[in-house]
């Protein structure tokens, strides 16, 4: 069974593991460091009671309650804090203090120098599946930028701080195994995210985010890469038990999650999954977009 699966996969994705992650070019994290060496963002209690402090708080609110406060820009059920734990403060969970000082920066994703505002717009467009993102000078982008700037207080500009991004988890020598990933999912993830990756709600708001399906990140989000999801999972999942899965388990379950359908890549080229794969996915880390798994074309999108 396992052999058969590997054989199925061998035709496509496993070899992709060697391809460099384009978009993480500015995100190559420094080796993991001890907590003592980690950058410490300021405390909320230090916030000044003035217009600036007020704007930071607005940014915080948007960051943790995105769907409720900016519904016109969130097409799925997610909040920023679903992928950036501890309100964007946690090391190895793509903390805002690690990102803010690295912009403006060139990104291969859109082949231009991006400001931090443009980077945030990318989050809205892909991770939040939000359609046209808020304008660079909108109240949303302004508040979120101010919140990120505040978290990065006293951080050096243009320096890659330890703990930024989701530090790489080495590709397992044997590649990944979707069947093993399904087992890991069942045992470790389903209790929160549901047997079908659907997440769990209270009322109409998600408490545990959906990992695939119409209310999750779309095929253009960085998290659709198996390597990126594996890194996020390894360092941060299960919630509060980061680091408890093996590298292999993290890769297996990341692949399992990212073999499922999600909203279409908004950059879809001429309605063609294959053209979109060639243009945006063929050289974007390890991913299954446009590949065929168990006879089914992945990346058809879901509404």
């Amino acid at each position: 069974m396992k052999l058969l699966l590997l054989a199925t996969l061998a035709s496509v994705p496993v070899h992709a593991a060697t391809i460099a992650m384009e978009d993480q070019s500015q995100l190559q994290p420094v080796a993991r460091s001890t907590a003592a060496a980690q950058f410490q963002p300021p405390q909320e209690s230090e916030l000044p009671d003035n217009a600036y402090g007020k704007l930071v708080k607005q940014g915080y609110a948007l960051f943790v309650d995105t769907k409720r406060l900016a519904p016109q820009f969130v097409g799925n059920g997610l909040n920023c804090s679903n992928c950036h734990l501890d309100q964007g403060r946690l090391a190895n969970s793509a903390p805002l203090w690690g990102a803010y000082p690295m912009y403006p920066a060139y990104r291969k994703k859109n082949d231009k120098v991006n400001t931090f505002a443009e980077r945030l717009q990318g989050c809205f467009q892909f991770s939040m599946n939000g359609g046209t993102p808020p304008a660079a000078d909108s109240p949303e982008i302004t508040a979120l930028s101010v919140y990120a700037y505040w978290l990065a207080s006293k951080a050096p500009l243009g320096v890659e701080l330890p703990g930024r991004g989701y530090p790489d988890v080495p590709t397992p020598a044997k590649g990944y195994d979707l069947a093993q990933g399904a087992e890991v999912y069942k045992g470790q993830c389903a209790v929160c995210h549901g047997a079908e990756g659907q997440g769990q709600k209270v009322g109409d708001s998600y408490v545990m985010p959906p990992l695939w399906g119409k209310d999750s990140y779309n095929w253009g989000a960085g998290m659709h890469r198996i390597n990126t999801a594996a890194s996020f999972i390894k360092h941060n999942m299960p919630l509060g038990k980061g680091g408890s899965l093996t590298d292999q388990q993290a890769w297996d379950v990341a692949a399992y999650v990212n073999r499922h359908e999600r909203p279409q890549d908004p950059r879809l080229v001429e309605g063609s999954v294959e053209k979109t794969r060639l243009k945006f996915h063929a050289n974007d880390g390890v991913n299954l977009y446009g590949q065929t798994v168990d006879g089914v074309l992945i990346g058809q999108g879901i509404r």
Partner: peptide
């Protein structure tokens, strides 16, 4: 009572 996520402790 309802407590929104946006509420700061």
């Amino acid at each position: 009572v309802s407590v929104h996520r946006s509420e700061m402790p």
